[in-house]
């Protein structure tokens, strides 16, 4: 097993080293002020602050939508659900896991944007909100999976004790089981956040990609939407390519930070 784990460490290290090497020319004092802007708009503006704020806002919004649904479904499937309904719900969530990001983006473009256009015609319905809704749909299975695992890890004696004292099954699960599994449940939400921060394709299709400060219902940018749209376009060894590598490091740092927080809670 050791060679394989060493390989994982090596690949991760190589990934970080490559990104840092590619980003270095944009991190020198002369180029650094460029990164403080709110707009990433080549060929002359490479502000990372706007896309960074957009990414954090989209992930937070997605988790606000998907967190309660995912945790609720996890609690239900991990400790209460039985029979046909449990299999049906579990199958539906498994199916959701397999839907590619581009399909989620396409469905949201077809069904969600027309509704949002009525509310905000000037922005065409694009912005952080549709991206967050699509991300929320994609994140639910991740949150549900970890939440259900956390609930399954609750010792049966605890719930049985509560039942023996006369509490109903629902009250026992919610009062005793959830209290015991709260670290695992918050870890599920954090891992969902990591997933939301790293997703690019669906976000690129729905956020609008305008180089402006982030807005709920007006075209905006996120780190991953800029990366998806521009990574292949940038000329090698240009400030544009180096600035994109900085955005890549920011995505990596955010996702790694959230994962580390999740691991500490486990």
């Amino acid at each position: 097993m050791r060679p394989w784990s060493a390989l994982v460490v090596l690949v991760t290290g190589a990934l970080v080293a490559t990104l840092v090497h590619e980003a270095l020319p944009a991190l020198v004092p002369r180029a650094l002020p460029e990164l403080w802007g709110m707009a990433f708009s080549p060929p002359d503006r490479f502000g990372a602050l706007g896309p960074l704020t957009g990414s954090v806002a989209v992930a937070a919004l997605a988790l606000a939508l998907a967190g309660p649904v995912g945790v609720g479904a996890g609690i239900y499937l991990g400790s209460l659900a039985q029979g046909t309904w449990a299999r049906l719900l579990s199958g539906a969530i498994d199916t959701l896991t397999g839907v590619p990001a581009v399909v989620v983006g396409f469905l949201a473009t077809s069904f969600l944007l027309p509704v949002l256009r009525v509310v905000a015609p000037a922005g065409g319905g694009y912005g952080l909100l549709p991206a967050a809704v699509a991300l929320g749909v994609m994140v639910v299975p991740t949150v549900e999976g970890f939440a259900a695992d956390a609930m399954r890890a609750v010792p049966a004696d605890l719930v049985a004790g509560s039942l023996a004292l006369g509490a109903t099954l629902e009250a026992s699960v919610l009062g005793v089981g959830v209290a015991h599994a709260r670290r695992g449940l918050s870890q599920a939400v954090l891992l969902g956040t990591g997933r939301a921060l790293g997703e690019g394709m669906a976000v690129e299709m729905l956020v609008g990609n305008a180089p402006h400060p982030p807005a709920l219902l007006a075209p905006s940018q996120t780190l991953t939407s800029v990366l998806v749209q521009q990574f292949g376009l940038a000329q090698p060894r240009s400030l544009w390519a180096h600035a994109l590598a900085v955005l890549g490091i920011l995505v990596l740092a955010l996702a790694a930070g959230v994962s580390a927080l999740g691991a500490r809670r486990a």
């Binding site: 402006h212 075209p219 749209q229």
Partner: peptide
């Protein structure tokens, strides 16, 4: 704030729908 899209097909879809 323009909508910036990477694919022709998406441009056609969005303009037709809006």
């Amino acid at each position: 704030r323009p909508v910036i899209l990477g694919a022709n097909g998406l441009v056609a879809q969005v303009v037709a729908a809006t």
